[in-house]
Design a protein around this nucleic acid. Structure first.
Lengths: 110, 110
DNA sequence: GGCCGTTATTCATAAACAAGCATAACGGTG
DNA sequence: CACCGTTATGCTTGTTTATGAATAACGGCC
């Protein structure tokens, strides 16, 4: 017997940030490109782009500074707001996971 | 900004118990019938029955004593193992939720 | 034995969701 | 000005998932 858990942030009852976007944004930061990041995560660019757009709309916050055209075609960089969100979410996520793990052990040890 | 979370139990990497089954089993206990319980939860009997069957198979534990035919057509009662699972999961679930809530407040207060 | 309401199960259909294709627009670069 | 790789977006296709219809079997009850 084991457990799993998921946690995510919502705005007005709509999901805006979870593990998916966390990984995606980190890859975007690493590569400076939504397309490269999506490829690396083996997800479609279509979905990656849509997720970012949806999150931005719901949050009312710009997560990426995107450039279309130009050197190497363009690219995307994380805004300070995105960095802050990543940091908060990461802390929240890992602390929550540790707590859930502890509770599981308490009630389902063996 | 708000949060949501899900937690569930797995056996050999396959989900066996979560909020859905918790509510379902409690309704079955209340009404003594899978069909009534499903109706009350506005879910199809097909799915309710399938979920119980799948969980039983994966857990290797009988959750319901089912009678087909007889007085009022039959019915279903929870086994002691099901009651025990419900109790453990409820404690685990509520303790986990409290912890997650606390972490959320810590990193996303205002 | 017919009736009733339940468990048990299959199968066809519908709905939700993800993937992929096709294009347009953009702006450096050669 | 053509090329390239990127963002941006709609549309089609496929895949998984849920729903509902249909049917069988059962056993107490009148």
């Amino acid at each position: 017997m084991n457990f799993r858990f998921k946690v995510w942030l919502e705005q007005d009852g709509q999901p805006v940030f979870g593990d998916g976007l966390l990984y995606l944004l980190r890859f975007i930061r690493q590569y400076g490109s939504i397309r490269r990041a999506a490829e690396e995560m083996r997800m479609s660019y279509r979905q990656a782009w849509g997720n970012v757009k949806k999150a931005e709309a719901r949050l009312g916050v710009t997560l990426l500074v995107k450039q279309v055209g130009g050197e190497s075609g363009g690219g995307a960089q994380l805004t300070p707001e995105a960095e802050e969100l990543i940091n908060s979410y990461k802390s929240f996520r890992s602390e929550a996971e540790a707590a859930v793990k502890k509770s599981f052990a308490k009630y389902f040890r063996q």
